[in-house]
Measured scan of single mutants.
Amino acid sequence: QTQEFDNEEEARKAEKELRKENRRVTVTQENGRWRVTWD
């Protein structure tokens, strides 16, 4: 699953929550947008 964010702060917040659920999370930056991908 993927979700896009406008800034790193929001993306990192989402990453932190997903990691609490023991998910594999990848955060990438593309064209000024932050993308959080998880399984």
Rank of each mutant, 00 (worst) to 15 (best):
Q1L: 11
Q1T: 12
Q1I: 11
Q1Y: 14
Q1A: 11
T2S: 13
T2D: 05
T2G: 06
T2Q: 08
T2M: 14
Q3F: 15
E4D: 09
E4W: 15
F5D: 00
F5L: 01
D6P: 06
D6C: 09
D6W: 06
D6N: 09
N7H: 07
N7V: 05
N7L: 07
N7T: 15
E8Y: 07
E8D: 02
E9Y: 12
E9M: 11
E10I: 03
E10Q: 09
A11C: 07
A11T: 02
A11V: 03
R12G: 02
R12F: 05
R12S: 03
R12T: 04
K13T: 11
A14P: 00
A14S: 06
A14Y: 15
E15S: 05
E15A: 15
K16F: 14
K16E: 11
E17D: 07
L18Y: 07
L18T: 02
R19C: 08
R19N: 09
K20M: 12
K20W: 07
K20P: 03
E21K: 13
E21N: 13
N22T: 05
N22D: 06
N22L: 07
R23Q: 11
R23P: 08
R23W: 15
R24D: 11
R24F: 14
R24I: 14
V25R: 00
V25Q: 01
T26Y: 13
T26A: 07
T26S: 09
V27F: 02
V27R: 02
T28Q: 06
T28K: 06
Q29H: 14
Q29T: 09
Q29L: 12
Q29A: 07
Q29K: 12
E30S: 09
E30H: 12
N31S: 08
N31M: 07
N31D: 09
G32M: 06
G32F: 03
R33T: 08
R33G: 04
R33V: 12
W34G: 00
W34F: 04
W34S: 01
R35F: 15
R35Q: 07
R35K: 12
R35L: 13
R35T: 11
V36A: 02
V36K: 00
V36E: 00
T37F: 10
T37Q: 10
W38Q: 03
D39P: 04
